[in-house]
Structures are given as structure tokens and as C-alpha cells.
Computed example of a mutant assay.
Amino acid sequence: MKILVTGTAGFIGSHVAMRLLDRGDEVIGFDNMSDYYDVTLKQARLARFADNPRYTHIAADLADREAVEAAFATHKPQRVINLAAQAGVRYAATNPHVYVSSNVTGFLHILEGCRHHGVEHLVFASTSSVYGANTKMPFSEHQSTEHPLTLYAASKKANEQMAHSYSHLYGVPSTGLRFFTVYGPWGRPDMALFLFTKAILAGEPIKVFNHGRHKRSFTYVDDIVEGVIRTLDQSPTGNSEWDGRRPDPASSNAPYRIYNIGNEQPVELLRYIELLEQSLGRKAKMEMFPLQAGDVPDTEADVSELIKNVGYRPRVAVDVGVTNFVDWYRHYYGT
């Protein structure tokens, strides 16, 4: 297939592009090479597959309507995976306009491209952050997500609603994936595992919020990629049992679905740090802080819908995943 993948210089996007190329697909990559974090890391990710004859790279911003329209008109992708976004929960406190430009306006341009060019299936990244103020565990797609706690989460909730409207009005088959705390090799430098590793190796203290007592469904990047591609290969159809009087947030009578994708076994942050210490062979100097504004105490993924409809569940244990990350980090940075 010919697949447009946005965010191919990003953490998840680069892994997805490589997997698609490995199985023989043609990939049109789209990335603006934002300087939100180290651009040389993005360039190194791209270098792993940029010379593949089935890869074409477009250096542009999703907020550039003409560039997105040209990508669809020129390359005519059969399917689209939208992973490009302004990431980071707390960055929105000082840079809110970037989130709307990238995550909302940019996503509108993707939807319009899918609408006007007969795209068979759009898979887009959402986030577990949309569960916001929910406290019932595990988080299920069938729960309400009307109370996001950050602008980042709100922008992703907007994506879900925008995609549903295009599925309903124009028949664009769309699937949203709510990622739960993705980690692994080639990760983002602003993510906890990256920050912790860098600080521990430098003998510097790490900031541990909520005294390390909150839990997360840490999900290894290869598990995420497998779920993304399996989902891409199964276009949704309308749910004939959907009842508008008792609407189900996870599906619709339109060709639209929402799935959680995350590890079913949440891990306490202190345990995560302990595994990192074991992999590095060094102890962390920890500075304890209360829970940050906008953070939730715990996340836990219910992935039963993903298992039932896509036939896959995340499998990489966190001790294996952390070790793999440390091995990559030491090799990449020569530490």
C-alpha cells in the first residue's frame, strides 16, 4: 500500500515508518522537524530509512494547508497514519497556540485530504490523557472523556470528535488510538525515562513527582507500532447496534472506532526507577515533589476492545523495555 505517515521524524512515527517499509509498503513521510527538542535526534531517526527507495519525505508543517493538500494530490495515499502533533503535557502552559495550530488546525487539513482523495482508512494518535478527571480504573473507551485536565488532552479530544464528524458526514473510515505512556529506544528527550537516564548517568538528582507513588501503563514502543499497523489493516465499519439514545463513545453508526493501546499491567513510578537503576548499575538521587498540576494519580489501560477487534495486546514487560532503552541510550550517546 501507499501510506502517508505524519511525524516520521518523531519517536513513534519513525518506528511505524520503518515497520511499514520492512513489510513492503510505500511510505510518504511528512514532518516539519520542529525544534521543540533536539533536531539532530530527529535527523538520526530519519537517517535509518530515508534512503529506502519506497520512502519519500516531505518537510512541511501540518498547519500549512497548501503543503498538506499538495501531499494528497501528488502522492494519492491509500491510507493515512497521523502521528504528528505538538507533544508534551506541560509545554502547553507556555505555548498554547502551538497546540491548536498543530493538533487542531493541522488535523483538520488531514481530514480534508482524506475526504477529498478517497482515503480508505485514517488512523490517528490520541492519548490516555483524554480520561482526565476520571478515577474509575481501568480506563475504558466506553467511559466519558468530557473533563480533560490539560490543553494537550483537550486538543486530542477535539481530534476524536472532528474525526467522528468526518466519518459521519463524508464516510471517512477513522480509528483513534489512545496511547498510554509510550517509552523505548529513540524516545523523546522530554520524557521521564530519558530525563532520568541522563541525570543518573551524570550523577545529578531526578525530580520525582507525587513521591513516585502514581502508576502508569508504561507501553513499549514496539507494542504500540504493532497495534497501529494491525489497526491500519482493519478499516472500521458502522456499528449496527449503536443506539443514539445510549451512545457509546468507543464506536458509532459511522465508520469510526476508538481503542486504548497500552500495557494492562500498570507499574508504580518508584518501581520504574528501580528497574532503571538496575539497568544502569547506578542509584538515583531522588528529589520528591507533590503531584504536578494537570497530572492524574494513575492510569491503567483496558485493552479488551483492541484484543477482540484487532487481535493484539501489548506484550513487552517493563523490565525488558527499560533495559532495551538503556542499551540504545548508551550506544547512541556513547556513555
Rank of each mutant, 00 (worst) to 15 (best):
D223T: 12
F139E: 06
M33P: 01
S174C: 13
T105A: 14
Y259D: 01
Q43H: 11
P77K: 03
M1K: 13
V267E: 06
A284C: 08
G113F: 00
A44C: 04
S217P: 08
E241V: 07
F196V: 08
N324T: 13
A93H: 09
F194N: 14
P266E: 12
V267L: 13
H121N: 04
L291P: 04
L41I: 14
T197G: 02
V104E: 10
V68A: 01
G176R: 01
G212M: 05
A63G: 15
V39R: 14
I206N: 04
T145L: 01
A70D: 11
H15Q: 13
I58F: 05
M33C: 13
E120V: 09
H121F: 12
E26R: 13
N159C: 14
R313P: 07
Y312Q: 06
A284R: 12
V104H: 00
W328C: 05
K198F: 05
P173E: 02
A60F: 04
M288S: 15
L4H: 02
N52Q: 07
P266M: 04
Q43D: 15
A199E: 03
I12F: 10
S240R: 15
A60P: 02
K215V: 03
V320G: 09
V119R: 00
S304R: 10
A293M: 13
D64C: 07
S235V: 11
V119N: 01
I3S: 00
L276W: 04
M137K: 10
L111G: 05
L275T: 07
P314T: 07
F139Y: 10
Y272P: 04
Q265A: 12
I258R: 05
